[in-house]
Design a protein around this nucleic acid. Sequence first.
DNA 1: TATAACCCTGTAGCTAGGTACGGGGTCAAA
DNA 2: TTTGACCCCGTACCTAGCTACAGGGTTATA
Lengths: 142, 142
Amino acid sequence: MGLTTSQLAQAVEINSETLRYYESRGLLPEPPRNASGYRLYPVQSVERLRFIKGAQALGFTLDEIKELLSLRANDRASKREVREQALQKVEQIEEKIDALETMRDALRHLIGQCSGDGPTSDCPILDGMTTHGIHAHSSTER
Amino acid sequence: MGLTTSQLAQAVEINSETLRYYESRGLLPEPPRNASGYRLYPVQSVERLRFIKGAQALGFTLDEIKELLSLRANDRASKREVREQALQKVEQIEEKIDALETMRDALRHLIGQCSGDGPTSDCPILDGMTTHGIHAHSSTER
DNA sequence: TATAACCCTGTAGCTAGGTACGGGGTCAAA
DNA sequence: TTTGACCCCGTACCTAGCTACAGGGTTATA
């Protein structure tokens, strides 16, 4: 009893090759096989894959998801550890947002200087590229 | 006369292999060679590479930068075309920002429900992963 | 029984933007 | 003349996360 590769793949709307890939990455445990060597996944795999997809949607990488899955499976693990991971992820996301906002603002600034017509020989946007360097953020260091 | 590969690479703080890579990608024109087949870049290459770096910092891909470079070189091209590209890039960036903010907010929401201590068996963050689906902005759906 | 629709494996390819390596040629100084 | 620092080329490798393919076995149905 259990789901075949294609059944599971369909159930969670994922490519069946991806299931094998997750198995090789250690995200999905090796499922039992039938007499012909076909994988037969337990129904819990559906939930596990939903977890993976959900965590991905929240920005976690597959390696991080592996971590989360093991925290979930480990009954000596604390909620605090999960919380830590989540907080760290929020920070990473905010760094990305900041970087993107800096880009956007710099672009907007250049666009604002563009008269909008005429040849590109004196285009403030193109000129801005070379002089740019993106000097906006200088406060954050590492 | 001209800069050797390593001189140019040093001048713009870029790996010299990257110069070859840009050449193969069509971002850098093939430079003249000396008798031994060594590349000798004209000084303008420095400015061109600064342009590339600047455009990258503003979020443009190498293919887009190639486009921008040809707009710059084409004296029949209009500032409007550049402006269009820039506006489109701003839009793309904002889409990314929105997606990241959605992630961040969802994560924060889950973190806010976490008591912070105890085993992970009833962790709202972990539980949130599976039920998530990342419901964009509205609260009730699916 | 034939044929489609599955299943298996290992490996290669994709995106994006590089970086590294191996094997070989060139050139200037000590 | 022998280092050592360059230069050349083609190709492989890297991150991340898949996706596809070739070549073979199995199962369900007509």
